[in-house]
Design a protein around this nucleic acid. Structure first.
Lengths: 337, 337
DNA sequence: TTGAAAGCGCTAACAT
DNA sequence: ATGTTAGCGCTTTCAA
């Protein structure tokens, strides 16, 4: 049943031409006569010729594949970013290979190596929670593969990044809660090592300072990035009976868990505790009460990261200046605050 | 900056061997002496040799890439299925190229063609809402590329499938509502053309029949697969003031919209209207009230689809019998019913 | 305007 | 146990 793949030679033979001529004709080279071009193109269509991308890739040392590494497809903003990238890249003939690090540094390293081995033309990464070394990315760059960080970017300055201003976003959330008359705001800070956790925490602190209030360290909860962890951490926090009137969580999932814990403790949202999340995941507007949260432009982040790749793919490695793009977030106020 | 890629020849030259010998040594061929093997392997490690997969692929006519086409990464069960596939496939050295059809037949066709052009070793598909012709899949099969359908499979019998028993699942939901004393159950049926919509509708009808009740056609709502559509469709349905006491939605997203509409109309869930969704998306247990829903084993579906691919990748095309795997669903009872 | 020759990096068939 | 030759399908010299 297996159909034979048409190759250049088949067309060449049929038209009594040579293979290179056919190749050039199909690429519309100036050195080929109009008639030849026409004949070749028509026959190629008729025979349903498809270039063997492996052969082209081998020859040109390009694969037209871009590797994307994200912590997890479950994260709404990761999927959104990937979709934004595809939007941009597919127009330029690239396809995307998605790898999930599952928040594991080891997996991330392996995936980068695999992508290098697969000779992808570029790597776009949102780093895992546990990533603290960046050698694997440097390796990729040394192989001539441009690396672009998006969303979760490391401190490493040798590559371009597309991020949001996490500090500012956190500040805006806290100031919003201040405006609602809240002063004792719990911060569910996420994993300690993660850079965006720290940065958002800085925003939290700065907001307090700007408001002339003293932050209380007891109000900080570190926990992992899941609903369950948010639930459990909040639950055990509430047992301490510390006085609170507001809550800001590093992301919506954790926030959903926290909200459940708060409600179980008999506290009313927003009357007793005003709540703000982060990310504006699709379902949070249907929670009871609908969640106030910070929308980050994940789709746009993806698009911009892809555009940076397109810009850098041909740049002479060695001496290009990495770009740092900062996109704006938006506070979406709903009934939880 | 760009490091030179080490190739077989570099190793061969360094050891005064021929390229094929090195190649065989690295693949642990029986015909190579132990010492040579050892020397080659060690040097390869030391030089950080990585085979050029393009060249290997060109030679062996394999790419170790598998194409996956899904309607959308937003759908929880799609992401889950993809993750399941990766789990299985990465062990066998395959990487996955994910394409989102975005429910568009045209995009799906283009993506299949691209995957064929990229010479993927297999294609795993959950078809789009608007797919009614299957020529593109047949094309792929004719090129010798195994095609496996998962989740949303077409009626086309020429390829293996991994699905759930949609009729049975729907029946179990309706019977559950019957047990709760409900008789006038709205069915939010999703897009009319979609096969799983029809099948779940059949389950709805059969349940009624088995229960000795006459189904009422006025209780069927057709609408698209989004929260908003669920909301709007339910809203306008409720305006007709038709008597209802139960609601079953084709998926959780639509269901969330429907629930919002029902609650806005002043009806209590589950007292006035008992509600069952479909998919058990991660957030639905945190809705108010937590949603009763049907869990489909998306992750397992993905794994099984991948395993079928592994089984079929070497089978002689032409005369293999397609497998049809049916996985079990589970009704998760929560407070909405 | 076209063709011949060479080579991308690898592996398989056929020597030896 | 190792080397020689050839070829996967394409593009890029270079030559005519």
């Amino acid at each position: 049943m297996k159909k034979k793949q048409i190759k250049l030679k088949d067309i060449a033979d049929a038209l009594h031409l040579s293979v290179p001529t056919v190749s050039r004709a199909l690429r519309d080279s100036y050195e080929i006569s109009q008639e030849t071009k026409k004949a070749v193109v028509e026959l190629a269509r008729a025979m349903n010729y498809k270039p063997n991308l492996l052969a082209v890739g081998l020859r040109k040392n390009k694969t037209f594949k871009v590797g994307v590494i994200i912590p997890s497809l479950w994260y709404y903003y990761n999927s959104a970013a990937v979709t934004g990238m595809e939007e941009v890249l597919e127009e330029h003939g690239y396809s995307v290979m998605i790898c999930q690090s599952k928040e594991s540094y080891n997996r991330e390293v392996i995936q980068v190596r695999n992508l290098i081995d697969s000779r992808v033309d570029g790597i776009l990464v949102s780093i895992s929670q546990s990533t603290i070394k960046y050698d694997h990315f440097i390796d990729a760059q040394e192989e001539g593969i441009p690396v672009i960080f998006f969303d979760r970017a490391p401190s490493y300055e040798g590559a371009s990044k597309v991020v949001i201003d996490n500090k500012l976003a956190a500040k805006s959330a806290i100031h919003h809660l201040f405006k609602k008359g809240r002063k004792r705001i719990v911060f569910i800070a996420g994993p300690e090592k993660l850079r965006i956790s720290k940065t958002r925490y800085e925003g939290y602190l700065e907001a307090y300072k700007e408001h002339g209030l003293e932050p209380d360290e007891n109000l900080i909860i570190n926990c992992n990035f899941t609903k369950n962890m948010g639930y459990r951490a909040t639950k055990s926090f509430l047992r301490k009976n510390i006085d609170i009137d507001g809550l800001f969580a590093i992301n919506d999932r954790t926030c959903i868990g926290a909200v459940a814990a708060v409600q179980e403790a008999g506290l009313k949202i927003p009357q007793d505790v005003a709540v703000v999340g982060f990310n504006d995941e699709p379902t949070v507007q249907y929670l009871t009460p609908p969640l106030t949260t910070i929308r980050q432009p994940a789709y746009e982040i993806g698009m911009e990261a892809a555009k940076l790749f397109l810009k850098e793919r041909n740049a002479d490695t060695g001496q290009f200046t990495p770009t740092k793009l900062i996109l704006e977030t938006e506070l979406i106020v709903r009934e939880s605050s």
